[in-house]
Write a protein that binds this DNA or RNA. Structure first.
Lengths: 184, 184
DNA sequence: TATTGTTATACTCTATAACTATA
DNA sequence: TATAGTTATAGAGTATAACAATA
């Protein structure tokens, strides 16, 4: 049997034996779901005090970049609805982590910029998340971690081992003019 | 930067560049999320005609086992609320895939059994999912697939390479008296 | 009194639609 | 007319609570 790990509410799904299924030797869905949920859960814990949680953190990182910073750009980049972005920014701004500034080039738009507090907060959060990644990899030794990350990256990017590592940068650039769900 | 892939609505999240983030070499969260979402999405597609989708499929597999079959057992095993299980079974029974039978040992309880149609349907669905697993692994060659599955399993089960493979069976057995979220 | 299963209700999160102010 | 952002509303999915039947 093959276990499908889906539970819509991934963030809160029990972590112990959900769909502990029927004892198959290699059940990709089960393992993938278990590891992913563990990562999500630990991340959410590490980012509990950030307005909007992991989503809020993503907004901070994107706002800290030098590329585009308008609300709609952020929403597209993070794959969230622009109405959701409004709420996220409301919370982040209320906590003094970001600011909405008028876009001199377009009076309809707002530019999102990190405040000083936002910048220092972001740095600290990145440290926390590095710890989470480290924990998730669990008992793997150094060489195994490298191997796993490499294989996972290749799967995620659908790249061949020969390719000069086609990282997310190139992909993101490629899709700069974002659109929802570009099929699979 | 480290990207946290969380979006609560994992099943429907865009797959292309969500949180395509800031071009880090190895971003575990991003890769994990991307692969997991791809798996979930493809599974959902493969199981679209099953009442309850992936969840319904899980109920079928568990019902097809010889261990416990009462509604509450199924709910615990799959990590869903018992009220959700009621709706799930309503749909599956309406389609003639499972039956609710009175438990001779406890007149409060109902035993869930697969119908003949449910059994044949289940077999076919497993075939579809094997295909999904195969697709998700993408460009990896055979040896790499084995390596990846092995590492992922070890991470998921937190087992050491030396351990006589401590698979989900032993874990499930261990937790037979299920409880929510066994910490992490 | 506790437990199985059902039903009804409330809550959370997300998307849809309508609105404003610009372009 | 189209777009950026906001707000209000409705929808899907889940959990909570109350209930009936049985232990």
């Amino acid at each position: 049997m093959i276990s499908v790990m889906t539970s819509p509410a991934v963030d809160v799904a029990p972590e112990g034996l959900p769909a502990a299924g029927p004892c198959v030797e290699d059940d990709l869905g089960w393992a993938l779901g278990t590891v992913f949920r563990r990562y999500v859960k630990n991340s959410a814990t590490a980012l509990a005090d950030v307005p909007g949680g992991p989503r809020g953190y993503q907004v901070l990182t994107t706002a800290g970049m030098d590329t585009p910073k308008r609300q709609l750009d952020l929403a597209n980049r993070l794959g969230v609805d622009r109405t959701v972005m409004t709420y996220l920014l409301d919370d982040l701004e209320r906590d003094g982590l970001v600011e909405r500034q008028p876009d001199p080039a377009d009076r309809r738009a707002r530019l999102i910029v990190l405040t000083d507090k936002g910048t220092t907060t972001l740095a600290e959060l990145e440290g926390r998340l590095a710890g989470v990644e480290n924990d998730v990899l669990g008992t793997l030794d150094q060489a195994e971690r490298v191997a796993f990350r490499s294989l996972l990256q290749r799967i995620a990017t659908n790249s061949d081992p020969l390719d000069h590592p086609r990282d997310k940068c190139s992909i993101a650039d490629e899709l700069t003019g974002n659109k929802d769900s570009q099929g699979q």
